[in-house]
């Protein structure tokens, strides 16, 4: 050790400040939130004709008021798991490509793996709910708790839950808030008939699209002064 004084820039306050600043800079460089949001908005919009046109009554029963049926869309139950898995592969490719271009590694692995697991579990749960309506008192009209379960097992919820994982991976508080708001809309939002499904899909797609635009603008703004 020498008797030379410590350079002012190597003082503990300055070193910790610089570390914190660099950490933030890396985190900003790693973020690409707009892409998954845009992709999921597109997939949700693309699901509208599939969901609405392929829906048909299933397991119909005679009730006092006439007939009760479970609505089921076989095409949507194939479309969503396939679309979600392909979307996560595309998201992984996007982040890896960006990582090479920007020169910083990516931590996207846990998001992609969790997203695929949630998508598969949600699809399984959704199919089980449709094929076991008696468990929830069918043919009586579904209770709010049953509707909550149906929404919980929906692909839109699967997207929202995975967004929370992405918020954790990117250490992105804004995305955490966005993900929670999106989940509240998806799980608790009630839309009036006769176009409840269409309204639900359009609103969720619009929320994702607006989120994508907002995050893209925010990323652009934070990158500009760094150059």
């Amino acid at each position: 050790m020498t008797d030379a004084p410590m350079p002012p820039q190597d003082g503990p306050y300055e070193l910790l400040s610089a570390s914190r600043r660099l950490t933030r800079r890396v985190r900003h460089a790693q973020r690409g939130t707009w892409f998954p949001l845009l992709l999921f908005a597109t997939l949700t919009l693309a699901s509208v004709p599939i969901t609405l046109n392929s829906r048909h009554p299933f397991d119909c029963r005679v009730v006092q008021a006439g007939k009760a049926c479970v609505a089921f869309s076989p095409a949507a139950s194939v479309y969503w798991p396939l679309a979600l898995v392909l979307a996560y592969v595309a998201i992984a490719a996007f982040y890896v490509h960006r990582s090479y271009r920007r020169g910083v590694g990516t931590r996207i692995g846990p998001y992609v793996v969790t997203g695929i697991i949630i998508a598969v579990v949600a699809t399984g749960a959704s199919l089980w709910l449709v094929t076991h309506p008696d468990v929830f008192g069918y043919p009586a009209p579904p209770s709010p708790a049953t509707l909550f379960l149906y929404r919980l097992a929906s692909p839109e919820t699967a997207i929202g839950l995975a967004l929370l994982v992405l918020a954790r991976v990117e250490r992105n508080r804004a995305l955490l808030v966005f993900g929670l708001v999106y989940l509240v809309i998806v799980v608790f939002g009630r839309f009036p008939p006769p176009n409840a499904t269409l309204t639900f899909l359009v609103i969720t797609a619009a929320v994702l699209l607006l989120g994508s635009i907002g995050f893209a603008l925010a990323e652009r703004r934070t990158r500009r002064p760094a150059r």
């Binding site: 190597d10 070193l15 610089a18 570390s19 660099l22 950490t23 590694g105």
Partner: peptide, 22 residues
């Protein structure tokens, strides 16, 4: 305990893998 070297370690820790240019 040096500004630049601590900076390199901080960035490498956060990024897991970082390119020379960055």
């Amino acid at each position: 305990h040096q500004r630049v070297r601590l900076g390199i370690l901080t960035i490498a820790h956060e990024a897991r893998r970082v390119e020379f240019g960055f």
